[in-house]
C-alpha cells in the first residue's frame, strides 16, 4: 500500500508544469502531495513493524526493484491526459472501497491512516469521474482517447484484487480487507461511470499479475533509477 502511494505519486508529480490547463496542474500536484504523505505514513509504519530500524526514506530510496510491491498499474508511464485520468479513476475507485473497509481494521495505526486517506481518495475519485465524463462525452477525439486508455489499462485492473494466503489470514483477524467484496463494488461502480460517459466496458480478458512477488514491468526500474539517484550516488550524504 505504501509502494502504491509512492509510485503513483511519482507518476502524478511528473505532470507538474505539464497539465492541459494551469488549474489542473495544481490539482494533480495536490493529489501527488496527498499520496506522498500517505507513502510516508505507510512506509514508516512498515519500517516499525519490520523492526530493523529502517525509516520511510530507507524503504523508498534504498530498496531494489524486486523488493517493491506496488501494483503494476501504478508504474505504467503517464501516457496522455486521458490515460492518466483513466488510471486515476480505476485506482481511486479501488482505493475508495479499500480504505473504506480498512478504516475498521483491528490494527489501529492502519485504521487511522485509512481514515485520513479516505477523505483524500474521495476527492481524487470525484475529480477523476468528472473528467471521465467530460472526456467520454466531450468530443469524438477525447472519446476515442479515453476509450483507448480504458481498453489498454483494463488488463492491469485484475491485479488490484488479488489476494494471497497471508491476506486471508489477516482478513480473518480483522486486519486486512475482504477483497472479493471490494472487487464486486469496484466493477459495479466502474461500469456505471463508464456507461454514463458513453464508454464501452472492456470484456474480461487476460489479467496481468506479478507485483505480489515483486515481478514488475520494465518501467519500475527507470522510476527507481531517477528517484534513488542522489541517495545512490552519494550514499554518505544526508539531505
Amino acid at each position: 500500500m505504501g509502494d502504491d502511494a509512492l509510485i503513483q505519486s511519482y507518476r502524478l508529480s511528473e505532470w507538474c508544469s505539464n497539465a492541459p490547463i494551469l488549474e489542473e496542474d495544481l490539482a494533480l500536484t495536490n493529489f501527488a502531495l496527498d499520496m506522498t504523505g500517505r507513502a510516508q505514513a505507510m512506509l514508516s509504519y512498515a519500517g516499525q513493524v519490520e523492526g530493523k530500524g529502517r525509516t520511510d526514506d530507507d524503504l523508498a530510496y534504498k530498496r531494489k526493484e524486486r523488493d517493491f510491491y506496488n501494483h503494476l498499474i501504478m508504474e505504467l508511464p503517464n501516457g496522455d491526459f486521458a490515460y492518466t485520468i483513466a488510471r486515476l479513476f480505476f485506482t481511486s475507485t479501488f482505493e475508495f472501497f479499500f480504505f473504506n473497509q480498512l478504516q475498521n481494521s483491528a490494527d489501529t495505526t492502519l485504521a487511522a491512516i485509512a481514515a485520513k486517506t479516505i477523505k483524500e481518495v474521495r476527492y481524487h475519485n470525484a475529480h477523476a469521474i468528472d473528467w471521465v465524463l467530460r472526456l467520454g462525452d466531450g468530443t469524438e477525439e477525447s472519446h476515442n482517447k479515453i476509450q483507448k486508455a480504458v481498453n489498454e489499462l483494463w488488463m492491469f485492473t485484475g491485479e488490484l484484487f488479488e489476494t494471497e494466503e497471508v491476506d486471508a489470514l489477516l482478513r480473518d483477524q480483522n486486519i486486512a480487507v475482504d477483497m472479493p467484496v471490494i472487487a464486486d463494488k469496484w466493477k459495479e461502480h466502474v461500469a456505471q461511470v463508464l456507461s454514463e460517459a458513453t464508454l464501452t466496458i472492456p470484456e474480461s480478458g487476460y489479467m496481468q499479475s506479478g507485483s505480489n512477488k515483486g515481478i514488475h514491468t520494465e518501467h519500475l526500474g527507470h522510476i527507481l533509477t531517477e528517484m534513488q539517484y542522489l541517495q545512490r550516488a552519494y550514499p554518505e550524504a544526508t539531505w
Partner: peptide
C-alpha cells in the same frame, strides 16, 4: 528535479513550492 528529490520530505516541499508558483501565476 521533482522526480529526483532525495527524500520524501524534500519531494513534498519541492512539489508544494512549485505548485505555489503555478498558483501565483494564476
Amino acid at each position: 528535479w521533482i522526480t529526483r528529490a532525495p527524500s520524501l520530505r524534500a519531494k513534498q516541499i519541492l512539489l508544494a513550492k512549485i505548485q505555489d508558483e503555478g498558483g501565483h501565476g494564476l
